[in-house]
């Protein structure tokens, strides 16, 4: 065997990590079901109830009045990506406790690449789930322009990577599985509710300027807006920029956290 692994070996490892994640997902098909039920309950129950209470004006990217169900579809795609990003990092904490993370981290490849491979694997599963949700939503008559379903792919990937990187960074700071449930509650719910997933910014501003400002800087809002615009064939450049910046920051935090010279692996336990 040569001293350093060729570039092909990097791709081999990446593909094996993605396939392993896909295989695990296939084995836990109930996960797909629960991943779909959650947003569908929001779409079919919550949105139906709030439809009358929440009037929406015409705001980009919409060119006409829309129903509340249509408004929250991108937010619910984001919700799937958010839950899944956290769930993949939960499995990382589990992997670490069970030891398989050790096996991964002793592979003769750069650690950032191994973490990136984990991230890609988790994002691939998230994107499949988001598409499954869009398909079910379409069955209930909530449809987007046909080209939106294609153009939304890069938006889902970028948002999935950004939220996955957030989960990865969090997993490097959490020592035990039990602590992770708390982190999820403190991350998932504020991320989701303090965003544009359920209400547009102007609606939020009516009740509180502060809440509006928090929503505006929440990276999750930008992921949702990126998806929303992409579903209508448009690019929200500001959201794209913020999402990429957040991905870079969360990714750097994850690499820092998993650095053998510091971060979680250094701490005894």
């Amino acid at each position: 065997m040569s001293d350093t692994l060729p570039a092909r070996a990097w791709a081999t490892a990446l593909s094996a990590i993605v396939r392993r994640e896909a295989f695990r997902f296939w084995q836990q098909r109930a996960r797909l079901l629960s991943a779909l039920v959650r947003p569908l309950v929001w779409l079919l129950v919550f949105a139906a109830g709030f439809r009358a209470a929440l009037g929406l004006s015409i705001i980009p990217p919409y060119q006409t009045y829309i129903t509340y169900e249509t408004y929250i579809v991108p937010g619910l795609c984001g919700m799937i990506l958010l839950f899944n990003g956290m769930q993949s990092s939960l499995s990382l904490v589990y992997d670490r406790e069970m030891g398989s993370m050790r096996l991964l981290l002793t592979a003769p490849l750069p650690r950032w690449w191994l973490l990136f491979a984990k991230l890609v694997a988790g994002t691939a599963i998230s994107v499949i789930q988001a598409y499954a949700f869009l398909a079910v939503a379409a069955c209930f008559g909530i449809t987007m322009p046909w080209y939106g379903y294609i153009l939304v792919l890069p938006a889902l990937v970028i948002t999935g990577l950004m939220l996955g990187a957030l989960g990865l960074a969090l997993s490097s700071t959490v020592k035990q599985l039990e602590n992770f449930a708390g982190v999820m509650n403190f991350v998932i719910f504020p991320c989701f509710f303090l965003s544009t997933a359920l209400y547009p910014l102007w609606r939020m501003a009516e009740s509180s300027r502060l809440l509006r400002d928090i929503c505006a800087v929440n990276p999750f809002s930008h992921g949702v807006e990126l998806i929303r615009f992409a579903l209508y064939g448009q690019v929200n450049w500001a959201s794209l920029g913020w999402s990429l910046l957040a991905f870079a920051l969360f990714g750097a935090a994850a690499v820092w956290g998993y650095d053998p010279a510091r971060g979680m692996v250094r701490r005894k336990g």
Partner: peptide, 11 residues
Amino acid sequence: LRYFAALQGIS
């Protein structure tokens, strides 16, 4: 075994 082989760059 094949998963480990892949982590070592063997496919």
